[in-house]
């Protein structure tokens, strides 16, 4: 996925979930152990080129 420093985490989640046809649900993006805040731009989240971001489901069932 091609990203720039102004992209927010919310934008990434939206694009990635749509592109990979993920089920409707809640997701978070993590960088290592850290869950990134949705409204934060990658620049402000300290994300650098070659960092790996992971989209993971946030399970909401009980």
């Amino acid at each position: 996925m091609e990203l720039d420093q102004d992209n927010t985490v919310d934008e990434i989640i939206e694009s990635a979930a749509t592109f990979w046809s993920k089920d409707m649900g809640a997701y978070v993006v993590r960088k290592g152990k850290k869950v990134l805040r949705g409204s934060t731009a990658l620049r402000d989240a300290g994300v650098r080129e070659d960092d790996t971001l992971e989209l993971i489901p946030d399970p909401e069932g009980g």
Partner: peptide, 18 residues
């Protein structure tokens, strides 16, 4: 709620029920 984002808001009214 600090860990939630727009994807949570989009499905907030849905029950993920078994």
């Amino acid at each position: 709620q600090c860990g939630m984002n727009s994807s949570h808001a989009r499905v907030a009214g849905i029950r993920f029920s078994c």
